[in-house]
């Protein structure tokens, strides 16, 4: 083993392996009563989420789009309707971004999200276990659904406030789109679409999913080191390449 490492001709001093051990703790699970309000992060940019579309400078990222597609898929399946295609989902995100830019809404209370979720489950005639199973099959955690529902509530509030002013939605959004600065990153969109075009089993293979969501540029992060101190990826990269190894758990 050691001989192999040496024989690898490592520009060795420059290489650092980083082992991420996942401590499974209770906070992972959904806690309906914990936060006072939920941030609507469905289309907020993160450094790790390269843009597929920019709407007046607001980023809709690859991860946000893929997550929205998966959530749309789960919700459609539970509702017994055909899911929207990927482009329809992207257009919905663009329209939602335009709407909330024009008519900003506060993040909904956690209680409102919980109630919305309960109402949907009742409407679909499914229970919590079925919901969780459907989310897991789509590679989603409950948090993704919560974010989506919080965002949908904001969009709904914004639409209702427009309608209260006598606005016709279709006309309004058409005008907004005509004047908005909407930049499509076609290459990135096409790359995602090509991945989606590959026939997949109902549960996508992890490799196929990761091809979509793994960023080209490594997201920076800072985490606590076992034994004390902090580790920041960008600081480590200044010293050379990094091998990042994710382990499922350390128990």
């Amino acid at each position: 083993m050691m001989a192999k490492w040496k024989a690898g001709g490592l520009a060795a001093a420059a290489v650092v392996a980083l082992l991420l051990l996942f401590l499974v703790i209770g906070t992972i699970r959904f806690q309906p009563n914990s936060p006072a309000s939920l941030p609507a992060t469905a289309v907020l940019p993160t450094p790790a989420d390269p843009a597929v579309v920019e709407v007046n400078g607001q980023t809709i990222g690859v991860n946000a789009w893929v997550e929205a597609m998966r959530v749309d898929g789960v919700m459609s399946a539970l509702a017994g309707v055909e899911p929207p295609d990927a482009e329809a989902t992207l257009e919905r995100l663009i329209n939602s971004a335009l709407l909330l830019q024009a008519v900003p809404q506060p993040a909904p209370e956690a209680r409102a999200v919980t109630d919305y979720r309960a109402a949907l489950l009742a409407q679909w005639g499914v229970d919590e276990a079925q919901l969780r199973a459907a989310l897991a099959d789509a590679g989603l955690q409950v948090g993704a659904l919560e974010r989506t529902l919080a965002y949908l509530l904001q969009v709904k509030q914004a639409q209702e406030s427009l309608l209260a002013q006598g606005v016709v939605w279709e006309e309004w959004i058409a005008r907004q789109r005509a004047t908005a600065d909407i930049l499509y990153h076609r290459e990135r969109i096409d790359a995602v679409m090509r991945t989606l075009a590959v026939p997949t089993a109902p549960a996508p293979t992890p490799t196929a999913v990761a091809m979509v969501v793994s960023p080209d540029t490594a997201p920076d992060f800072t985490l606590e080191r076992a034994g004390g101190g902090q580790f920041t990826l960008s600081e480590q990269l200044a010293q050379g390449a990094v091998v990042l190894v994710f382990f499922q758990r350390c128990g």
């Binding site: 060795a12 001093a13 290489v15 650092v16 392996a17 980083l18 082992l19 991420l20 051990l21 996942f22 401590l23 703790i25 906070t27 985490l223 606590e224 080191r225 076992a226 034994g227 580790f231 480590q236 350390c250």
Partner: peptide
């Protein structure tokens, strides 16, 4: 090399 071990709870 050094191998930091990190937790990402």
């Amino acid at each position: 090399a050094t191998f930091p071990i990190l937790a990402d709870p």
